[in-house]
Design a binder for these strands. Structure first.
Lengths: 117, 117
DNA sequence: TCATGCACTTACCTTAAGGTAACCACCCAC
DNA sequence: GTGGGTGGTTACCTTAAGGTAAGTGCATGA
């Protein structure tokens, strides 16, 4: 998605932040709590390492996630966490998620099925 | 934006519907009431006729807008209107629009300025 | 008669997003 | 010493979204 230079309203700016192919899935995953790179990769089937890193870098630049590097002894542990801004973004996305689940996914629902977010 | 074959949650499905470059602007414009093709084109500076038609066709296929063709005498009048589903989508987008306006556009606000949606 | 408006369609082109696959350095366990 | 796990980087390629510009048919107005 090409970054727009000027935004005419709040939504197209927000869509720009959140419009990458895997970004909402990353935000969704991080909503449960911090995750490490490998956990994110395994938690989002289909995403490649390259795209995951670029998406994470962009979300970091936009202030949505923070990247926290630490060493246990000499082993790298990189954790990604939602910033307060990211948390507020996820809250703002919730109604859209409800809408999509209700109107776009409803035909896939089985009675006993665990409902997706 | 490439249509995904399976969605893992409601939001990525919704983003798919709404993720075209000009789609939220179209939805925003139609929120005030039905508009004709030329009115939409003039109301969304920068969009080309080709992209506007493809976006409108996709929104129509997704059940978000309805296309109503009528003839006044022999002159074509095509009006685009939000369907009830489209209205509900716009309502679900409102919090995201608020978020974007607050966190992404706030630095551009002048005291007396008309605030964008 | 010519231009203009309406609502498009068509052919062509550019660009950037995303995918593929290999490679990197470091560390640990077997 | 080799295989696997950590968290990536790099070069290359494909594809589809979007942009450019011209053309279309019909009607009205100057």
């Amino acid at each position: 998605m090409t970054r727009r230079d000027t935004y005419v309203c709040g939504i197209d700016a927000a869509i720009d932040v959140v419009g990458g192919k895997w970004k909402v899935l990353i935000l969704w995953a991080l909503d449960e709590g911090p995750l490490r790179f490998g956990e994110l990769r395994r938690g989002i089937p289909g995403v490649t390492e390259k795209v995951l890193t670029t998406h994470l870098r962009e979300l970091e630049n936009d202030g949505i996630v923070s990247r926290d590097e630490a060493f246990e002894g000499a082993v790298r542990r990189v954790a990604y966490t939602l910033t307060p801004l990211g948390v507020s973004l996820n809250e703002a996305l919730a109604p859209l998620g409800d809408w999509g689940r209700k109107h776009l996914l409803s035909e896939h629902h089985e009675p006993g099925e665990v409902s997706p977010r």
